[in-house]
């Protein structure tokens, strides 16, 4: 949502460093994403964008500072971070194959703090954004097409009503029409719900259309920033 930024609101990252074994991947990343904005991470493969998302969701141990609305993110287990309101849709997707579409979505609701509001109204909301899932409610998720599974993974993440949504190459491998639909949906969700988002994407033109701000990442550092309108 627009308005003067509240101190501490949104995502704040300072001096984030991370390594895989002996190899340092993040060399001190600084970025800020005000609450309610969509930020896009651009850059070449191997720049560390996926690692950055993983550091934020707790899959990778990192040092430095990362806070969401003032709450510390680093040093916590992934499920704890998820319950704090961070949802991460990974590159691999991560649907629960043997579970039905509906069951997949209900698992997503587990991250919500108690008391969990009725899942029913949320399902309707989600089907409004992803109508294709409504028809396949009782099918095992593993039988859906790759694109539909991607949408399911994102829908599941949204079931948690996250404050921060992290998405790693959500459009990869999607047919152009589905990809376009997905981006319009992301834009609508952000507009209606005010969810802060960080998206890693290769499709630069589409990404820049929805982004409030973008970051260029190279070799583990942020090398350029743009707030809509200016580099």
């Amino acid at each position: 949502m627009t308005g003067p930024p509240v101190a501490g609101a949104g995502l704040e990252v300072r001096g984030l460093r991370a390594e895989y074994g002996a190899a340092r991947v993040l060399h001190g990343v600084d970025l800020t994403v005000p609450e309610g904005e969509i930020a896009v991470l651009l850059g070449p493969n191997g720049a560390g964008r996926t690692t950055l998302l993983r550091a934020l969701s707790g899959l990778v141990r990192a040092r430095g500072t990362a806070t969401l609305d003032g709450t510390r993110l680093l040093g916590r287990a992934p499920d704890e971070i998820a319950r704090l309101g961070v949802a991460h849709v990974t590159q691999e997707g991560g649907t629960f194959g043997p579970l039905t579409v509906e069951e997949n979505l209900r698992v997503g609701a587990r991250a919500r703090p108690w008391p969990r509001r009725g899942a029913g109204e949320d399902l309707d909301r989600l089907f409004g954004w992803f109508p294709v899932l409504r028809a396949q409610l009782s099918q095992p998720a593993g039988t859906l097409s790759g694109g539909e599974q991607r949408l399911l993974a994102i829908a599941r993440a949204l079931m948690a009503r996250p404050r921060l949504l992290l998405m790693d190459e959500p459009m990869r491998g999607l047919a152009p029409r589905t990809a376009g639909l997905l981006f319009r949906t992301i834009h609508a969700i952000n507009r209606d719900e005010g969810t802060t988002m960080v998206i890693v994407e290769h499709n630069v033109p589409a990404a820049l259309e929805v982004a409030h701000r973008s970051f260029l990442m190279e070799a583990g550092r942020i090398t350029a920033r743009r707030v809509r309108g200016r580099w």
Binding site: P78, R83, G94, F96, G97, E103, A160
Partner: peptide, 20 residues
């Protein structure tokens, strides 16, 4: 439900807030 999810994909379950 949560047990079946963990059995299917523990990492995704973690990211969904499940105490794996």
């Amino acid at each position: 439900l949560v047990m079946r999810a963990v059995a299917a994909d523990a990492r995704s379950a973690r990211l969904s807030g499940v105490r794996v």
